[in-house]
Design a protein around this nucleic acid. Structure first.
Lengths: 210, 210, 210, 210
DNA sequence: CATGAATGAGTGTTCATTCAT
DNA sequence: TATGAATGAACACTCATTCAT
């Protein structure tokens, strides 16, 4: 699907509002107002509010796919280093696209069988496959242990970053960072998450539990 | 606050519907219908839909507090064993009260300054304090390393379990467990999460990173 | 109709609230709340909200009837003096029972054929008859002119006092009396209205227009 | 504020219903029904029921302002004649716009600090200022006495006409005019009020009370 | 005699969507 | 292609009243 400038503008506004207030608490009027367009335009361009949501997912979900192709062919990095690159890449994407991730987190919880749900499912499967490739590579070379539950490992990566984003105001408060500039705080989160997840992944991938 | 039988029944129905469809997508009519009562009763008993939500949080949030009092005084368990007990306790509570946790996950994302938001904040603070006590005990005895970011550790515990619950249908699918009985699947999740988180915590608490 | 203490208390509260906010804008819950009783009591004691209004009118309307019996037989006063006594009596009652008069003013405007409307009509007729007696006495003795439209004259008396009550806050403002104590202000209004209406009535009753 | 045809139609219907039944006893559904439009249109056009009321006041209150500019410059009329013209003008406006005046009478009684209340207050002040100009002119030329309470005089004018309108059915009844054609009855009222108020004003403006 | 619980109808308002232009 | 006008359904909530006790 190709979207023109106006449609993209609408999608971006929708993303912002859905992220802040949730899909149901955001009216098409809110979106139209913030986008400076007529209410009818949303139905006109996307067919319905739900279809707008689908368009949003179609457009944004591709940006947050884990990409592993170049990484695999890179012969200068060890398997663990590759995993670390991947972790940083994931954190970077997640934090940069907080808004969309918030929407996705909420949608993920709903059990309904919607188009959006299937997009999310597809995304998860792709991400899982990508990371599996890297793990298997490390296992073949003997760098990683045999017994690795990749799904659980992903769950921890996604869950930890998600939870960090969701509770960032709590995090700021307990760490006395209320006044910290947003950009600086994002850097801080990235660094913390990076070190933290790398440590966890190292444990999962290389320490044999007996 | 004390609630009578009818009120509790309403709260339970509301919990189920809010968990399944979200707060905004659930109308008071839906709740009244499922509870077999008149719409007016929700206002009558709780004042408003929002107050019903608050009542729900008031009632349920106490059930999911981490309790460490007995654990601390137990002299038969090592600090790490205590942490492991706590992990299992947390997983148990979270999975048993999935519905409420789903609601809380969604509410946590919204940035608004509501009563519910403050209840969640309070809960997080209490849980953090509880777990800090155990950690400090282990540090004093030398069982745990000095440098532990408890908030990040909690983030991983909460995040991992949350993410597992949120994506349990994905988990079933990629593990070919679609047909597994719900009770058995819960057992499976608990076991998996237990082993996984214990491994992660052990790494965070005892391995010094250089 | 006889009303017990509780009923009278309810009627008094209702009078206050109806006067302040209007009949329709006052809910039985408001009344019950202010009276410190159960909502059901209003239906229980009076049958309905409308019947409560009727009870209110039944009770209060008798207090504001113009009484001329003693006045007529008083041989020490001239006809004009008697009219002046009546004017003061009317002003006194109206201001003392402002609340009820406000309710009546509003009800009077509605065109519906209700019980309350018929009570008001009855009251007006009685008051008209009373005053007519005094006028006729004065005409017989030659003190008053022949051609007097008593209805119009009453309209001016009632209308002037009503309007004064209705717009008393405007009156205070344009006369810089915002800070004046309520009791003192009532005295002021009474005096002003008294002199004013007496002058008007003297003109209507004694000056022949050619 | 400019209103389009549809909006004006709605305002007119609202005026009729508010006049007949009162603001609170008139539902937006009643208005929508009588106007042959959808209920949502009232919110759509005016924002809310209250805003509709304000629009009504904004539109109609200008029509009933006493205008005195031309009168002052007219050199062919004596001060008293000018007052008489003003009285007739006021009666004419009041009776022609009975509906709106009924609404205003009721609103005037309520003590709340609403937009409508402030419009009424403003209107009263303007009318008072207008009439004061005429009075002062007459006083300067020696036609009127010095000691005139203009506010009280206005109170009598407004009050008398208001009361006449409010109790016109009573008036018809006691004067055996139930069957009189509405148009003819209005003429009758105007004539009666005109003569009556002119007599009263003459007394207030020219007779010195000793 | 009194009341807490409960009800169905109604309130004003907002919703996503459609229509006529 | 674009939009202001309009709609019917739904929203949360309040209403006066009734009922069982």
């Amino acid at each position: 699907m190709e979207y023109n400038e106006k449609q993209i503008a609408i999608i971006d506004i929708a993303e912002k509002l859905f992220a802040e207030n949730g899909y149901d608490a955001t009216s098409v009027r809110d979106i139209a107002h913030d986008a400076g367009i007529n209410v009818a335009m949303i139905s006109y361009y996307f067919g319905s509010k739900e279809k707008l949501m689908e368009a949003l997912f179609e457009r944004k979900s591709t940006n947050i796919r884990i990409k592993v192709e170049n990484l695999i062919q890179n012969e200068n990095l060890s398997p663990l280093q590759k995993i670390n690159v991947l972790i940083d890449d994931y954190i970077e994407k997640f934090i940069a696209q907080q808004g969309f991730h918030k929407i996705m987190m909420r949608e993920q919880i709903i059990e309904k069988d919607t188009t959006v749900a299937s997009i999310i499912l597809e995304l998860k499967k792709r991400n899982l496959e990508s990371i599996k490739l890297l793990i298997q590579e490390g296992q073949k070379s003997g760098s990683f242990i045999k017994n690795i539950d990749v799904v659980l490992m992903m769950t921890t990566m996604v869950g930890t970053v998600s939870q960090m984003i969701s509770s960032q105001y709590f995090y700021r408060e307990v760490n006395n960072m209320q006044q910290m500039d947003e950009i600086e705080f994002r850097k801080h989160m990235k660094k913390k998450l990076s070190v933290h997840l790398k440590k966890l992944f190292k444990a999962l991938l290389t320490y044999d539990s007996q």
